[in-house]
């Protein structure tokens, strides 16, 4: 136990300052913006609707100590019924179409949807076919898109902040 505590002390705080909403200044940080919108926290449900797993890796990276998303009061939840925001990676496979629709329908209002990655945003290299419906927007309403293959954790955080604070989306990874 002493070794673990000693290592934690040596590691120190790695968290970096997250992106600000739109043109917000340092006195107007992410957390207070989110507090204004939600009171306490933002709950995200993630659905992989047919991705290659690249976008998932970057979404998972949001939880590492450098991005420390939970430290900003944003966390991932296990049920769509607890979620304010749906992060969807794609392309939407025909085999996931129904599961995606049902997840979206299970979320309480108000709710946002962000289509993640080039595939989620426009179908990417897979496009539309017998097996792929292409972009997330072809299946459920989408509020914002984050391009990139995969988009960086910073681009993902920026999109989350922008969409939930009503900023026009940047759209770029």
């Amino acid at each position: 136990m002493f070794d673990i505590l000693s290592r934690i002390r040596r590691t120190g705080r790695l968290s970096e300052t997250g992106p600000q909403a739109g043109k917000a200044t340092a006195s107007d940080p992410l957390q207070s913006k989110l507090h204004q919108t939600f009171g306490r926290a933002l709950c995200i449900r993630q659905v992989d609707a047919g991705s290659c797993n690249g976008c998932e890796l970057e979404i998972q990276a949001l939880g590492n100590p450098y991005y420390n998303l939970e430290g900003s009061g944003i966390h991932f939840v296990a049920s769509p019924r607890h979620a304010d925001l749906l992060l969807v990676t794609g392309p939407v496979s025909v085999n996931m179409e129904e599961a995606l629709k049902r997840t979206y329908q299970a979320m309480p209002k108000p709710k946002w949807v962000i289509a993640v990655g080039d595939c989620g945003a426009c179908g990417g290299i897979f496009g539309t076919s017998y097996a792929s419906r292409g972009s997330v927007g072809n299946i459920i309403p989408v509020d914002a898109m984050v391009n990139g293959c995969p988009p960086s954790p910073t681009a993902l955080m920026q999109a989350i902040v922008d969409v939930t604070t009503g900023m026009p989306q940047s759209g770029q990874g």
């Binding site: 047919g50 496979s93 025909v94 085999n95 996931m96 599961a99 897979f126 076919s129 097996a131 792929s132």
Partner: peptide, 8 residues
Amino acid sequence: YAHKGVAK
């Protein structure tokens, strides 16, 4: 579920 027609 993630079948997206790669071969085709």
